[in-house]
Amino acid sequence: MQAFHDVSFPLSIAFGASGGPERRNEIIQLSSGAEKRNARMAYSRRRYDAGAGIRSLDDLYEVMAFFEARRGSLHAFRFRDPFDMKSCSRGATPASSDQVIGTGDGSKRRFRLRKTYGEGADAYMREITHPLASSVRVAVDGSEIQPSAGFSVDPATGEVVFASHAVPANGAVVTAGYVFDVPVRFDTDQLNASITSFRAGQIPSIPMVEVRS
């Protein structure tokens, strides 16, 4: 049975990966020479290849064990995207004001984390489902809330859950900052490893693809 394993792909190897978001658009050229373009996917999907992250035999053995434990492509897991892993820019520290995640109505307790790319009507809003729970910072109308006093992070959905005594008031803007992982699975059922010297080895390709629940 397929499942999500709440474990992280080795970070040191992930940071050597290549990849990024994928879109699927249908482009039809009309007889007039004009184009008609349609989005075939409402959300982007990320693909990665961590083969370049293998730098030692220890790395090789670690990935082989991780692959076996996931039963190849059967079970999904966490992957830290080296290019996009924070609510803020890569070099900054997440702040509670980074991303607007909703507006209170006086009774709503659960707010899904999200990250916005671009501005205005053309902005793309991405749901974040696997934050690093300890990194999540939250503010209501600009005032930061401490986790111990007002909120928690649901490990199953990644949502911010306010305590009953700290529910945001009607019209209150809820913002958040965080570090996050991408849920992925291996996009292959075979790894081709080789030992190139006494202390070095390689796995030329370790493809992974984002999964959506």
Rank of each mutant, 00 (worst) to 15 (best):
N170Y: 09
Q190F: 09
V182G: 02
S143W: 14
A121I: 14
E119C: 13
A3V: 12
R24L: 11
V209H: 03
S8F: 12
V161H: 03
I203D: 04
K86N: 05
I203L: 02
N25C: 10
N192S: 12
V179T: 13
N25A: 15
A52D: 10
R55Q: 05
G118Q: 03
V184F: 04
T175F: 04
E127W: 14
E26D: 10
R137M: 06
A17E: 07
G142V: 11
F15E: 10
R90K: 05
F180P: 02
A149Y: 08
K108H: 13
I101G: 00
F186D: 08
S164Y: 05
A176F: 01
V184M: 04
S8T: 10
N25E: 12
P10M: 13
N170S: 14
F66G: 02
F9R: 00
R126H: 11
G102R: 00
A166R: 01
P82T: 06
Y117F: 08
S18Q: 11
P21N: 07
K108G: 15
S8D: 13
S213M: 14
S18M: 15
I13L: 05
V7Q: 09
N170G: 11
R47P: 03
R78H: 15
F77R: 00
I195P: 01
E119H: 04
P21S: 07
K108S: 13
T129F: 05
Q146W: 06
G33Q: 02
Y48G: 03
Y61S: 09
F66Y: 08
A95K: 02
